[in-house]
């Protein structure tokens, strides 16, 4: 190999590149450009699959979502935002005590809860009307309801659907935006 060729090889240049006139190389070819491509997140194209809760548990969770955050004032309901499907995923990923809290709480609401009328449903979740305490309720079912209320609200209000509704109602983008820090090796 000639000396010039060796240098080109070390520099990572194709042997022909150095032979091209400067005018030709100044306009980058498409293979040297890296434009930002328009991409979408998975929740814009697909519905979250339900893999953790049983059919009855998930039906009870959806009912709970309807009660905690119905559609109001031009904002979507919790179920419009896919909050129940998201919580199925989040709880599946959570430590065992959280999974137990949810499963037992939804089982306590029971299979009939999804079809319950307003009065019956309200009675079932009456512990949500108890005054706040720092320690929270000692009864696991009441604790589940408080946790679910908080999670359903956060899951819904942090959703794309909620942000879009907020941005329609006011100027500027809706929803929380902040700096995301990438992982550093």
């Amino acid at each position: 190999m000639k000396r010039r060729t060796i240098i080109r090889s070390i520099a990572g240049l194709p042997a022909a590149a150095a032979a091209l006139p400067a005018q030709t190389t100044s306009a980058p070819s498409p293979t040297e450009q890296f434009p930002k491509l328009a991409l979408e997140g998975p929740d814009t194209v697909g519905d979250g699959a339900v893999r953790f809760f049983t059919k009855d548990q998930f039906a009870a969770l959806r009912k709970l979502c309807d009660l905690i955050l119905p559609a109001t004032g031009g904002r979507p309901s919790a179920n419009d935002t896919g909050a129940a499907e998201f919580l199925d995923f989040l709880v599946r990923e959570s430590p065992a005590p959280v999974q137990t809290l949810y499963r037992e709480g939804l089982d306590r609401l029971g299979a009939g809860f999804a079809a319950a009328g307003p009065a019956q449903a309200e009675a079932a979740i009456a512990p949500l009307k108890a005054a706040w305490t720092y320690a929270g309720p000692s009864d696991p079912f009441a604790r589940f309801l408080q946790q679910a209320k908080s999670d359903i609200l956060q899951a819904a209000m942090s959703s794309r659907e909620y942000a879009e509704a907020a941005s329609r109602g006011r100027r500027g983008a809706g929803g929380l935006t902040n700096y995301f820090w990438r992982a550093v090796d």
Partner: peptide, 25 residues
């Protein structure tokens, strides 16, 4: 070393994998 230019980017909470909850545990 954290690089303020390269290591952070503006993001909406709904674009995060866990909608702001963070990875459980």
């Amino acid at each position: 070393m954290i690089d303020f230019e390269k290591d952070r980017t503006l993001a909406a909470v709904h674009d995060l994998p866990y909608r702001g909850f963070g990875r459980p545990g």
